[in-house]
Design a protein around this nucleic acid. Structure first.
Lengths: 216, 216
DNA sequence: GACAGGACCGGGGTCTCCCCCGATGGCGCG
DNA sequence: CGCGCCATCGGGGGAGACCCCGGTCCTGTC
């Protein structure tokens, strides 16, 4: 494992904890204190797991993952990243996951828990601290208001729904007309009904409305 | 914990495993064999964790989560769902997570691992089997082609990017002009450059382009 | 100093969007 | 049968979107 954190004291703490709680399970092969060092250390030592601080000089942990992913691995498996941070802010967590981390734990974690988390990430598991699992899964599950959608959407006729779908995808009236073998004027009539029924006022609002509800 | 699975034999197996490996940690308070039973059992026993089979008669595990979420809890905390399935298909996993599950493990799991997974989900952790963590996190991280985006996006000047962002969000030229303290004509000039540089032909295509690349 | 490029602004034109008004034919319902 | 709803089509018009052309400043480069 590679330990990346800008505080040497913290890295020493991780080493000490893992030496006792994780003896024989987790081996620290190297340390790094900023983004450049981290990228070099990954290339040199090819660790299975990188314990990665989120707030790191030189672009943060996300930058490390981005640069490691951009470099050729020479056929070797890329390391798995376990993010470690004092922050439990949603944007940090989600940004880190988007960046490619396979886990995110806060620094309130105990040594034994850290050993377990590292082991799990090494096995391919996803690991999240309790408070963070909520962010990740909620963001992933999305804000799908099933009940509200149906009530509005059911007011539309079949033909109106077809027109709505195409308009929301950015089709011009002319293109919708050609696609559905009807006149432009009919498309305008349907669109007028759609906007009125959905209480929207333009095709742009309609596009956002449909996009938020994943109707495209 | 509530065990939901349509095979009585499997439920018995879970009970037996948890009695030995999870003695004193995990207590099975009830069982259910289909969606209706599961929803009733949740209302009656209010378990902390529901071990939920994905392929279940009556709509699947997703239907259970949907109906439990729709019913008032009477102030009590809703249970956390741990999905359990023979399937490791991406659509099953992602659909289940979208449905609100806090974890997903396959039935190849051992008794000790199951105890650990249940304990973690009860604590609020997200738990995923190794092969599944890939699906979930990749789907969440999205298909972000950093390299392709930058080449196109870097051709835009700073001002063009600002205009592009607002237009992609559905702002009218007039609104963009007001927002950026410039004239409508200037907005048109910038938009013309944006469309030319990105090889797009309308604000609608631009909106889709930006939306696909999560630039909003 | 010439030259390029970016930010800024304008005229004028065509097309699209969105609304108002109208009409016809079909289909089910009381 | 009258009535309402739906799908179809049209005229007209105002506002906006998009594109063509023109221009003035400023800044950085050679």
């Amino acid at each position: 494992m590679l330990v990346v954190d800008d505080h040497a004291m913290f890295r020493a703490g991780v080493r000490a904890e893992l030496a006792t709680a994780g003896a024989g399970v987790v081996e620290v092969v190297a340390e790094a204190g900023d983004v450049d060092e981290a990228v070099r250390a990954v290339a040199e030592h090819r660790p299975d797991v990188v314990l990665l601080d989120v707030h790191l000089p030189g672009g943060g942990g996300v930058e490390v993952m981005r640069r490691v992913a951009a470099r050729p691995t020479g056929g070797a498996e890329p390391p798995r990243f376990l993010a470690l941070s004092v922050s439990d802010a949603a944007e940090d967590v989600i940004g880190t996951i988007r960046g490619g981390a396979r886990g995110y734990v806060t620094k309130t974690i105990t040594g034994a828990e850290l050993v377990d988390a590292v082991r799990r990430v090494a096995d391919g598991d996803a690991v999240f601290s309790p408070r963070l699992a909520g962010f990740v899964l909620d963001a992933f599950a999305g804000t799908i208001e099933v009940s509200a959608v149906d009530e509005d959407l059911d007011r539309l006729t079949e033909r109106e729904r077809e027109v709505m779908r195409l308009i929301a995808r950015g089709y011009a009236y002319k293109e919708v007309a050609r696609e559905l073998f009807i006149s432009i004027k009919t498309v305008e009539t349907h669109m007028s009904s759609v906007l009125r029924k959905l209480q929207l006022s333009s095709r742009h609002e309609l596009a956002r409305w449909a996009s938020e509800r994943r109707l495209l």
